[in-house]
Design a protein around this nucleic acid. Sequence first.
DNA 1: CGTACTGTTGAGGGTGTTCAAAAGTGGTGG
DNA 2: CCACCACTTTTGAACACCCTCAACAGTACG
Lengths: 253, 253
Amino acid sequence: MSIAPYASLPCSRCVARESTLCASLADDDMHRLYGLATGQRFEAGGLLLRQEGPADHVFSLRSGHANVFRLTADGKRQILAFLFPGDFVGFTSEDNYHYGVAAITPVEACRFERTRLELLIEEFPRMDRKLRFTLTRAMDASFELLFTLGRKDALQKVASFLWYISYRQRKLGQPDNPVHLPMRRADIADFMGLTVETVSRALSLLKQMKAIRLRSAYEVEIVDTDRLRSLAIIVAEPAPWLHEDPDYYPHKD
Amino acid sequence: MSIAPYASLPCSRCVARESTLCASLADDDMHRLYGLATGQRFEAGGLLLRQEGPADHVFSLRSGHANVFRLTADGKRQILAFLFPGDFVGFTSEDNYHYGVAAITPVEACRFERTRLELLIEEFPRMDRKLRFTLTRAMDASFELLFTLGRKDALQKVASFLWYISYRQRKLGQPDNPVHLPMRRADIADFMGLTVETVSRALSLLKQMKAIRLRSAYEVEIVDTDRLRSLAIIVAEPAPWLHEDPDYYPHKD
DNA sequence: CGTACTGTTGAGGGTGTTCAAAAGTGGTGG
DNA sequence: CCACCACTTTTGAACACCCTCAACAGTACG
């Protein structure tokens, strides 16, 4: 039985090809990973992973945006991360997810069964390494957010957020200046540990300070880059969330 | 040249033997890892890693406690994690550490050069896997902290903190009830995004509620476990409205 | 054009911070 | 052993920032 040529796989034209999971396989091996993938589409609001559900799947985003969130019984929500094309999500050390993942725009994703994926990884140790590097990046990003939540005021938080989204756009090869926000104010608020009103006020203040201009509620133009950066107290460039560039690490594979 | 028998290595009696890095090697291979290790001691306050310094080393804690912190030029500090015996620290995707690591009690640690460690890992792919699992756990813990910082009030934060330390003690095989705090109030405050005064007030309130008793400033007895747990909101209750969703997987293809 | 949802703006109140001082703790030397 | 000192913790009071509640404005969609 002959193997499907790489060029015939959707993977050959997928944004995520160079990211995380997929990037660690050579063209000739891609069909192995593709064979495990279930393509899925979600409407905005659709749930990729359910909080408290069995932790048996992993997703890789091909297009669209999603958020990783955590809810309590009393209705409080904390968004733990925003997912962009190329990101993956679902690895956890728990038996059940302690977070949910919801699409905030229409999403296309590849779903993998974790047990079968782990078997494949065992066959291709390079994947192990790649995943480790990506998780290390995720930890760096998480530290960044921890600092933001713990030690910045509302204005600094919102400035940091805009800076972060701008950065993510650039990492996807898009222009970084008109910042397009795929999420609602409520999402921004739950990400930064604020309320919608405070987020709105902070944006108005940034506008009034002439640091930004609001083309629409979801389209932000950065006018004064220095001002915004100094407000964000960016000690370090926010590490991309679960997204990998050309290997930084000293040892190539 | 003969190989040192495992029993003669300090590793055979080390707390960290079953943790992270070290656990992924068989007894007969331990000398390889040990050969890369530089034993180091730090007094309380000593710096294992310097924020902004070159990211070229990794530490594994054999004894004592440390914190991972981040400072800004204006003096604000956020503690990102507390380290216990068996923990390791130092992997990052950046060229320079965006955090520092300081001993809060006397610390014994093994220091590894990252480049040489990576070479060893390449030889023993099991280490890659083990590190990945450990990093996944670290991400879970980080998510937990993000939720705490973003969506809990002062009392809940301090309750969560006590619960966490109690948990860490249990995981080290120690009794979990008299909670011994190796860190100062300022460390707790900088971990939970509060001030020392607020931490102190929260502890006094917990004492007044008869949830805890303060044997000394650093020795906390949990009197009312249920009360403390419910304040900490440790496990998010399964949100009912999430389980009603008819189609978990909206679109198959 | 009406409806529902989302975002913005305003006013008042609560929680945590800031500033300040007292009380507790540990170490050193007389 | 006590006195003294430096440091940490606790407690108090006033203030600031963000949240809550509320009303209004903007936008999308039928």
